[in-house]
Each structure stands twice: as C-alpha cells, then as structure tokens.
Design a protein around this nucleic acid. Sequence first.
DNA 1: AATTGCATGTAACAGGTTACATGATTGC
DNA 2: GCAATCATGTAACCTGTTACATGCAATT
Lengths: 211, 211
Amino acid sequence: MSLRYALLALLRVGPLSGYELQKQFSMSVGHVWHAPDSQIYPELRKMEAENLIEGEEQPRGQRATRRVYHVTEAGDRAFLEWMQTPLEYARVRDPAHLRAAYLEAASPETARAFFRRHTEQWEAELAQWEGELHRIAQVDNPMLVRRLAVTDPADRERTIAFKRFTYEGLVDRAHAEIAWARRGLELIDSLESEGGAGPVPNGPEPSAARA
Amino acid sequence: MSLRYALLALLRVGPLSGYELQKQFSMSVGHVWHAPDSQIYPELRKMEAENLIEGEEQPRGQRATRRVYHVTEAGDRAFLEWMQTPLEYARVRDPAHLRAAYLEAASPETARAFFRRHTEQWEAELAQWEGELHRIAQVDNPMLVRRLAVTDPADRERTIAFKRFTYEGLVDRAHAEIAWARRGLELIDSLESEGGAGPVPNGPEPSAARA
DNA sequence: AATTGCATGTAACAGGTTACATGATTGC
DNA sequence: GCAATCATGTAACCTGTTACATGCAATT
C-alpha cells in the first residue's frame, strides 16, 4: 500500500508522466521506498481506476503519446488521510541477523566474508543517503526545488526539516550497521585467537565498544 | 527463501513436529524472522518434497497422529551451502521513513502521534530482544540448551557468542530508532516554537545529540 | 544509420498475510 | 463435561521480483 502514497507524494507537487515519475521516484522517494517501473506503471493505472489520479494522453512527435498524471481532489484527500492513520509495522524479517545468529556453522573466513559484504552493502546505502542529505542542505534536488516552489513560504522550513531529519535517521542506521559488522569481524578474531582455550561463557565483549 | 533455512536451523538441533517447531520458532528464530504457522506447515511439506527433511507419522492417542520431521543429509548440506552463499539484500522499503519524509503534510499533533507510535513499536521489539539477550546470557532458552547439548564443547562458546552478538545488534537498532523518534518529537517542538520566525536553513539540529 | 533515451507495459512466479477450517487429546 | 492446547492445514489475496516485450523520437 505504501507505493501508492509514495507516488501521490510526488504527484502532489505537480503533474508528471509515468516515465518522468519513475525517474523522479528513483532519485527521491525511491531512497526510502524502492519500486521498479514494472510496478509503477500498473499502480498508476490502478490509482486512476480508483480516481486518485487522472491521466491525460499527450501527443509526442507524430505517432507516440505519453500519459501525464495529476492528483485529483480525492487523491489529495487520500494522501492526507493516510498521513493521519497509524502506520502499520511489518513483522521482523531480517536476513542478515538471521544468518548472523548461526555463523558458528560457518568457517571464520566465511563469517568474515559475510560481515565484509554487510559493510559494503550499508556503505553503498550510506553514500546514497549522505548524498541526498547533502542535496537537501544545498536545496539542490530537483524534486525538492519543485516542491518548495509550490509550498507556502511558512511551510518551507518544515518541509526541509522533515526531509533532512528522515535522511539523518537513515544515515545513523547505516553507521550502526557498519559498526555492527566491524564488531562482528573483531568477534571472529577474538574467537579464533582464544582457540580451544576453553569457553568464557558470560565474559565481556572482546573489544566491542558498546555502552 | 530465508524461511526454510530458519526452519533447517532449528531442525538441525533435533527432530520436531510441525507444531513443536512452530512453538520453538516463535520463541527463538522468530525474533529475527517472523513466520505464521500457516506458512510453516506448507513450507515443511515443500521441504520434504525436496528431500531436505523427512517426516515420520507418529501415533498420538487413539486416532490422531503427528508428523515429526528430521533433517536429511541433503538438508544439512543445503543449510551449510546457504551459509556460504552471499546474502541477498532486499531493496530499501521503509514505511516509517517514507512517512517521516512528508510529515510537513500533517499537523504537529499527528506528527507527534507518529513518533510516539514509533517509540512504542520499537520499545516492544527492544523488550523482546533484551529478554532474549538475557536468556542467552543465562543459557536459559530451551532451544539454545538443546543446541548446546548436541554441540561440540569446543564450539559452544562460538555458538553463544554469535547469538549474543546478533541480539546485541538488534538491541542497538531498537535504541537507535527510539532515539530517532525522540529527536523527531524535539524537532516538532522546535518548529512550533519558532513559528513563523523565518527559516533556519542549515542550522544545527534542535537538540539532536548526533556526532 | 545507429545509439541513447523516452515511453509503456505484460506474464510468471515467489513470498507473505489474513481468514477460515477442523478435529483429537489431555487435564481438570 | 469443558477448556486448553495439540495438531494440521487450505484459500484468497496482496505485494513485489524478474524477465520479457515493444516501439517511437531525438541526437550524433
């Protein structure tokens, strides 16, 4: 259900074609809610069928057309209503922590590879999110600029503040995941160096800098 | 795909019926990978069809039976192979951060309700994970006890260490989410008190204790 | 003329959710 | 006799993924 609200959020700024929307999507809200074009086009059709948006065929060249969508009043209302409904949280389903819980079944090298991959993954996300944070600070994201242009001056600060705050949270999360992976590598080292020297059941963390 | 490996992880400790498995699941690996029983039973059948596990009908009372599953050699191999394959990371899809990014479209009170709900949600998760961490430290989780009983003494320390490490990561995450929500509430306060006093484009965080 | 970008989808499948459905056994 | 819990599923639906499929337009 979130996809349609992500789409409405973009369309509320102004009309866009499916293609434009899909491009804007990947450069803005796609950083928190990924969706491929094969999902976006059908969803737009469904939203149109439900009168949340309206599409207008526009000629393009001689033969081709494109469909430009704009939000209807019902769509605007639906978005605002969604903002007011309590968010539904998905049940935990975390493949990385699932695997981490059973790393004793892997060799130290395999376990290290896992944590290196985890670091790599989250560093890539971090780069995306930090980039976005930077573009927000510089007011240098095309979608954000368009949004501010149609926003009451009194609300511009809030608009920017919530975007920044969102990406700060994501950046923090990425840092936390990377730190966890680093501690994981340290844990493997310490388990290896201890070797068969007997268990240390409830000893302190090897070198994990946790409060 | 993760579900079957979560199930294999439990069954590798020893045979269990679907019902027992489902109970054990919710008390152990279910804390990182939720699955309802309506998903577990069919998955067990599928795994049996693929020879990863074998089920034995056991009589129970006069008429009833129960099906006790144990891991086959192929199942054991499949689990170990999975442990060695690089984890596939799902694309970002975060409803809370999606909504946070557009909170300027909500009233301050609605925005506060969102962050209070977020706090509540993660405090519930935190309680679960801290409880689990405590049970790991006390070696007081039935599944863990059974696991250690069939684990080479030399590997017991690692087994415990990785479980503890996993839940520590989750506890950290919960703390981070709660801290983010608290900063969100502070942000709303500061935006309200500033009122129409003009934007503070790139000013420091209101009172966010971030590095 | 060829490449890149614009533009829009369909189809098959995997995975997960919710609701529904049924009945036996054991302990009180 | 009744409740709890043991025990096992099916069906419909939703969301998302991957692969496939097509063709025009603008630029070089």
